[in-house]
Every structure is written in C-alpha cells, then in structure tokens.
C-alpha cells in the first residue's frame, strides 16, 4: 500500500506546470489527490512524475458570470458559474452564489464522498477523472457545461459532450491542465433535481440520477449505469412510462455492488423521483 517512486514537481505557475507535463510523457497532475493517491498506493498507477498544481495561485476561484457577460454565446444565454481547478468540493458546496445560480451543482455535491474528502478533493479534478460512478461529470454533461484547459498550444474549451470518452478516460491530452469548469445557470422557470442510492451515505452510488426540466424538455443524466455519464431525453414521455423509457437507452451493468436487475429497478424509481421533483421546482419558480 505504498506508491512506487516518482519525481515530484510543484510549479508556481500554470505555464511552468504545462511545460513540465509537455516534457515528460509519463507525468500526471496531482490536484486534491483523493482519487489519484489511492490509485498510486494500490499501484494501479505509477507515473514517473507528479506535477502538484496546489501551489499555483488563482486556481481556486468560484465566480458567477452574468447573462450580460455571456453575450458571445460561449457561456449560454443565462450566464452560469465557473469553478477553478483548485476549488475544493467543500468550498463549491458552501458557496451561496453557486446554490443560487445553478442549484443542481450543490444538490449533487452533497452526495460526493464525505465532508473530510470534500475538504481536499476538487470539483474539476472529479470531472476530468471521468469516473462514470461520480456525480459531477453527469451534472456537467446534463447542463451542457464545459471545461477550459491549458496546454502547450494555449487554451481551449472542451464541451462536456466531447469530454467523456470511456471509463476514467477524458479527452484532455496528457500535457493539458484543466483550469476551470463552467456550469450554465438554471434558466428562469426551469427545474433540477438530484438523487442517488448508495449502500452507505457518502459511498459511490449504485445508481444516481439528475433531472433537468425546462418547459416541454425533460432530460435525465445517470451515473453508474455505463462507462460514461449518460443523458437521456425523456421529453413528451408520460409520467408512468418514464422509467421504462429511460431503460430503453441504458444498459445497467452487473457487478459486485449490484445486479443489473436491481440497477434497472433503481433507474425506474430514481427517474420518476427526480423528474417529479424537478417539475415541482419549475412550477414553484
């Protein structure tokens, strides 16, 4: 249970961090370490170099972007929240701005691990780690958010729809660092909801679901039902058929944590629950 040897760099600037990564094909970024350190300790990963980004200043921002600033369309028509690479889950969860602008982020973060893990783990780290059992990748995907990355060729924005390639596999190049994640705001009159079933509170979910309802549009994102976060469009489906309609697009896996049948049942229950609760929120608005 001890990591294999690695070289350690702790750059003070983003530019330096990118150049270290670019010069070392077997280097990995270390953010909160709440996913990476267990992988190192179990020797499921043994990179030659770790680039610790924790000393880079300015990466812990949590900022709201007004609709007025979002004119170029890049940020969607209602603005949103931007979360920097060193913003810890706990800080994002505690932010009243985040809760007001996009409540789905706060709703889902409550289910990410335990408070102690959230004190160190980063929201951006959990997104680019691209675990299909994690909450925040699904939230980003459902909301149509994006990640801004910096590499040797400069900055680019990766939409969530192009970010998740496979289990623990994102479309970041090995020499790119995620600088921030952008969650579009909740539109006036729209509603969101999140729920999951886990063996114990704080565990990874057996199945989780996030709903987004806006007028006639009903979309639900799922975690732990496939290799990547999956979003299903359920617009126009009658309430009683929501679960079956979702399952037509999903293929829940069998594993040591739950059988495929049990997961399918959780999909039925959670889909109905989150769609109902997102509708209630939309109606109350």
């Amino acid at each position: 249970m001890k990591p294999a040897p690695f070289a350690y760099r702790r750059p003070g600037t983003l530019a330096e961090a990118v150049s270290v990564l670019a010069g070392e094909p077997d280097a990995k970024v270390l953010a909160g370490g709440q996913s990476l350190v267990p992988l190192l300790s179990m020797r499921l990963a043994s990179p030659a170099t770790l680039v610790d980004i924790n000393a880079i200043t300015g990466l812990d921002v949590i900022e709201t972007i007004d609709a007025n600033d979002a004119v170029d369309g890049q940020y969607g028509e209602h603005g949103g929240v931007r979360v920097g690479a060193l913003a810890r889950h706990a800080a994002v969860l505690a932010s009243p701005d985040v809760r007001r602008v996009q409540p789905l982020v706060s709703m889902a973060l409550q289910h990410v691990a335990h408070a102690t893990i959230r004190n160190r783990g980063t929201t951006v780290g959990s997104i680019v780690h691209a675990d299909a059992a994690a909450e925040m990748p699904v939230v980003l995907r459902l909301l149509g958010g994006s990640v801004e990355v910096e590499g040797p060729a400069g900055r680019r924005t990766i939409p969530a729809s192009e970010l998740f390639l496979g289990p623990l596999q994102s479309s970041l190049a090995h020499d790119e660092i995620a600088v921030s994640a952008y969650f579009p705001a909740l539109a006036p009159g729209a509603g969101v909801a999140f729920d999951e079933i886990a063996r114990r509170h704080g565990d990874y979910a057996l199945v989780g679901a996030a709903a987004h309802v806006d007028g006639e549009s009903v979309r639900v994102g799922y975690l732990s039902v496939g290799d990547v976060p999956t979003v299903v469009d359920l617009s126009g489906v009658a309430d009683d058929d929501l679960g079956e309609a979702a399952l037509a697009h999903l293929d829940p896996p069998d594993d040591i944590h739950a059988t495929a049948d049990y997961r399918a049942q959780l999909v039925r229950v959670l889909t109905t629950r989150v769609v109902r609760s997102a509708r209630d929120m939309a109606e109350d608005a």
């Binding site: 350690y8 270390l30 370490g33 709440q34 350190v37 160190r120």
Partner: peptide, 10 residues
C-alpha cells in the same frame, strides 16, 4: 483531511 491521501511534500 485524510493524511493517507496527502504527501508530506505537499
């Protein structure tokens, strides 16, 4: 925080 998930150098 978990001390087993941090390195002394960090």
């Amino acid at each position: 925080m978990r001390s087993c998930l941090m390195f002394a150098v960090s």
